[in-house]
Amino acid sequence: MSDALLAAYDAVLFDLDGTVYHGTRVIPGAPETVRAAREHGTPVRFVTNNASKAPDEVVAHLTGLGMPAETDEVHTSAQAGVQLLAERLPEGAEVLVVGTRALADEVARAGLKPVRKNGDRVQAVVQGHSPDNTWAALAEACLAIRAGALWVACNVDATLPSERGLLPGNGSMVAALRTATDVVPLVAGKPQPLLFETAARSVGAQRPLVVGDRLDTDIAGAVAAGIDSLVVLSGVATPKQLIEAIPAERGTFLARDLTGLTEPAEDLRIGPRPGWTVTVEDGVLIAEGDGEELDLLRALCDTAWETGVTELGERAEAALS
């Protein structure tokens, strides 16, 4: 375990949807890996862009999936969104809530007044994912935003992983309001660094590691916070997205799922890999050699990121298909 990836860091910050579970289905190996981190003495934090559940509900969900947790180990985009509101509004200010009861409760705990209807006293709108968000709720928010209310989006994830596949996320609903108002909201959750910074501070971590499945939120948030990251292929990210990733969305390590945390760090690092040689010929990435497909992907990413060439040769494309 001394050479395992998790041993090289003083905290592990886990994304949830697509990394630890898909809705009500745990991703194989997740409970054992979280347990291994705890047994090693590495603090863990669960950092989620999903604003629909309170921390105690997240704890109950994790516990039911075989991963006991404490409420202070959970950091949600709802908490981050309300933090932004509390920093900008006077105590008792009315906040129009588009989201779940859990989000409204967070607003109330911050000394603000959650409401569901627009009115002359509404000073802000906070928007988080809820399966019950309706056109009527968006209409109330539209009126408030057009009247000048501060607008905070807990996150802008376009999709939400589930056991049935990808579903519309909060970002899809935010996009509707952006179209209707021509206003861009403040974003509280990933890819902004606030959630990761808060989670790392909560354990006094100087060298944390982010584990996530989504390049444009998890990995981009880690890059923005200056934190190393492990990309897992158990959720949204695809090999094509990894190869084409812009600098702000490039991870440090790559694994099939979060069980990679117990593997040697150098085996997971994105870069040149034993057994594979990747070159550029006529604007195409050419792979030669033999070995594990994930090692090939790590090597392809390294060359693509260095050269800007992302088109795959036949062998590389076949190996990753």
Rank of each mutant, 00 (worst) to 15 (best):
M1I: 00
A4V: 08
A7D: 10
Y9M: 02
L13M: 08
L13S: 06
F14Q: 04
L16D: 01
G18T: 01
V20L: 15
G23F: 03
G23C: 02
V26L: 02
G29L: 01
A30D: 07
E32S: 02
E32C: 01
T33I: 04
R35A: 15
P43L: 10
R45E: 03
V47D: 07
N49S: 05
K53I: 00
D56K: 01
M67V: 11
P68Y: 01
E73T: 03
E73G: 04
G81I: 00
L85F: 07
L85K: 03
L85R: 06
P90N: 12
E94C: 04
G99T: 06
L103W: 04
A104C: 11
A104F: 10
E106V: 02
V107P: 06
R109T: 10
A110Q: 08
G111R: 13
K113H: 15
D120H: 14
V122K: 15
Q123P: 10
G128V: 12
P131K: 14
P131A: 15
T134K: 07
T134R: 14
W135P: 07
L138T: 04
E140L: 11
A141E: 07
A141R: 06
C142L: 10
L143W: 11
A144F: 11
I145C: 14
R146Y: 03
R146T: 11
A149L: 10
W151R: 06
C154G: 13
N155Q: 05
A158S: 15
T159G: 06
E163D: 13
L167W: 11
P168F: 11
G169S: 09
M173I: 09
V174K: 13
L177P: 08
R178H: 01
R178D: 05
V183W: 00
V184C: 03
G189R: 13
P191L: 02
P191S: 04
P193K: 12
L195V: 09
L195Y: 06
L195Q: 14
L195H: 06
F196E: 08
F196Q: 12
T198S: 09
S202Y: 04
P208C: 03
L209V: 09
L209P: 04
L209E: 09
R214D: 07
R214W: 02
D216W: 03
I219K: 14
V223Y: 02
A225D: 06
G226D: 06
I227E: 04
I227C: 05
V231F: 05
L233E: 05
L233A: 08
S234F: 00
S234I: 08
A237H: 09
L242A: 13
L242N: 07
E244K: 14
A245I: 06
I246A: 14
I246F: 02
P247M: 09
R250T: 00
T252V: 05
L254E: 12
G260V: 09
L261C: 11
L261E: 03
E263D: 08
R269M: 01
P272E: 14
T277Y: 00
V278A: 09
V284L: 08
V284K: 04
L285Y: 09
A287T: 07
A287C: 04
E288N: 11
G289I: 12
D295R: 07
L296D: 08
L296E: 03
R298Q: 05
D302N: 13
D302L: 00
T310N: 01
T310S: 07
E314P: 15
R315N: 03
R315P: 00
A318S: 14
